[in-house]
Amino acid sequence: MSETTEFQPYAILPGETISLDKYKNDKDVIKIGPGLLHEKQQVTAIKAGTLKNHNNQKWWIDSSQRRYVPSLNEHVIGKIIAKTQDYFRVDIGSAHSALLSTLAFEGATKRNKPNLEIGALVYARVSLANKDMEPELECISATTGKANGFGELKDGFLIKCSLGLCRSLLNPNTPILTALGEHFAFETAVGMNGRVWINTPDISNTILLSNAIKNSEFLSAKEIKQMVKELVKQSEDDMEL
């Protein structure tokens, strides 16, 4: 939209109101995301963070927190904490544990159920999120009914980080994962609930990767490249010794 002034993201505190009049357009619907509240014809911030927008249509506050609040269709990593005939009880880091039906796996039938042990990790999609009900999970894609990467995460290592870092890791061009991918062979699963699962063929690499990812949260792209370079050099030196 050329007629409106270019918007610059800025820091915002809870309670501040945002005037969207400048960006109003009869043509489209304005979408406000997490951290913003629309009440009495006013849009108010309810979280501290950076106010961002996309095409003057989508507005949200980019904030980082550690408490996960489930929301529909978000991808999460959960840990099985109990199992019954019909469902698994899964810890996804939210206030309440989630339910995962044994039939919500690709190719699962009443006779052929997946056999997951207590403590196993699953990559799943939130299929029901309501503040008054327990969240529910599914390990199949919403559109195709196929696994599409969902299911049990075998082996590997789970690290916990802030929700903000997880969101940046979901970006396909995230600097930390691309930089690490140039030097190591590994596999990751990123959940929006502040959990990252890493799998490498070598334990020492797993430790290195998990430390690198945890440290990358407040580094710029340039600093991340530098850090990865140093880490690679260090691990090569250790190998020689």
Binding site: K31, G33, P34, K52, K58, W60, L170, N173, M192
Partner: peptide, 17 residues
């Protein structure tokens, strides 16, 4: 102007998911 609110970050991720 209609304003819709969403609780999830899913549609607000820049650059893909």
């Amino acid at each position: 102007t209609k304003i819709e609110s969403e609780s999830s970050f899913m549609n607000f991720l820049e650059g893909g998911n």
